[in-house]
């Protein structure tokens, strides 16, 4: 009897953030009009889509006890790359450097963005796996490098005037479901398959669980880590590409700070910062919960400056609760 009571208490504490925010959603939904509306849901789902793709990328790094602080800046770079290559021919403010480029198919441009960004992921992977630089530091450096490259490339010129075959990717829908949402679901399914049904996925969890033991068991730790960082960067690039389409513009500060939101969302969704633990479904919940928090705060009319404070508290509490689970296990 007594032990059951404790379990309920533990369950409540471990999922404290999720429960709290769901209560908040119910409260806001009941008290504010338009919260439970189709347009709001569509809006939230589109926001969630990009964040989710980024968070899935970061989750691989977190599961192997790493992290990736370059995520947000890679998102920005991909958005700017796509932006400079996908402006309308008749747009007056076309980007100097690319204005005479031939008009390529939008999917080819996506591939170009992904390929270019993956170079940075490859470097991240090599730095972490072969040079044994802590991921926190290695990717922090990459964050600055990518931002710098973006500044040099765009000269801080904001981009706009996109082709409609680009913007439709974000704004269009299939039977009322936004394309963005569908893309996110497809990516989620692919990554779920990778995490659960491939050698790479198993190796990833093994490295996170015990890197030295994984090495002894014959796991190619270095290769696996590199694949994780490259995949992550590919996902950031896709997210950046979609983000540009969604906003109809991009600038050097697009994606700024998204890596921290992604890490926070992963942690809320049960991806352990101690490695070895984390599921795609958890990442979805984490991103959703975090996005709902932001939406609720907006609906409640809270000053945006205070929203940052609230988000910060949620991040710290989420990680503290995660660590608590780990310590309790001992």
């Amino acid at each position: 009897m007594n032990s059951k009571k404790v379990n309920v208490k533990d369950l409540l504490i471990n999922n404290g953030i999720v429960i709290l925010i769901l209560l908040m959603v119910v409260f806001v939904g009941v008290t504010k009009e338009n919260f439970f509306s189709l347009s709001n849901f569509s809006n939230v789902s589109m926001n969630v889509a990009c964040r989710f793709i980024i968070a899935v990328g970061v989750s691989g790094c977190l599961i192997t006890k790493g992290t990736d602080l370059s995520a947000g800046r890679v998102v920005g770079l991909a958005a700017c790359l796509a932006g400079t290559l996908l402006q309308r021919a008749d747009y007056s403010g076309r980007f100097e450097l690319t204005k005479n480029f031939p008009e390529l198919n939008v999917w080819v441009i996506l591939l170009i963005c992904v390929a270019l960004c993956c170079v940075f992921g490859l470097i991240n992977g090599i730095v972490v796996a072969y040079l044994n630089v802590p991921a926190f530091i290695g990717t922090l450096g990459m964050q600055m490098i990518v931002y710098g490259i973006n500044l040099v490339y765009t000269k801080s010129v904001p981009l706009g005037g996109y082709r409609t075959d680009y913007t439709v990717i974000a704004n269009g829908n299939f039977l009322g479901i936004p394309y963005l949402f569908i893309i996110a679901i497809v990516i989620g399914l692919i990554m779920w398959f990778v995490y659960n049904y491939t050698r790479h996925g198993k190796y990833m969890y093994a490295i996170g669980g015990n890197e030295a033991a994984a090495e002894v068991a014959g796991v190619n730790v270095k290769k696996t880590k590199i694949i994780i960082y490259v995949t992550a960067t590919a996902l950031y690039a896709i997210a950046g590409f979609l983000l540009g389409a969604k906003s109809g513009g991009a600038g050097v500060n697009t994606g700024n700070g998204y890596e921290l939101e992604a890490i926070a969302a992963c942690t809320i969704g049960g991806v352990s910062v101690n490695g070895g633990i984390g599921r795609i479904s958890g990442v979805i919940i984490g991103v959703l919960v975090f996005e709902l928090l932001k939406t609720c705060l907006q609906f409640l009319g809270i000053d945006p400056n205070y929203q940052y404070i609230a988000q910060g508290i949620v991040i710290v509490v989420a990680i503290a609760l995660d660590i608590r689970k780990y310590i309790a296990k001992k």
Binding site: K202, Y203, Y205, A206, G208, G209, N210, A212, A213, A214, E215, V216, A217, G218, V219, G276, I277
Partner: peptide
């Protein structure tokens, strides 16, 4: 350097 502690027996056997 042996067990992968937070993984299942199935994962530990098959890795």
């Amino acid at each position: 350097t042996g067990i992968l502690g937070c993984l299942s027996i199935a994962d530990n056997v098959s890795i």
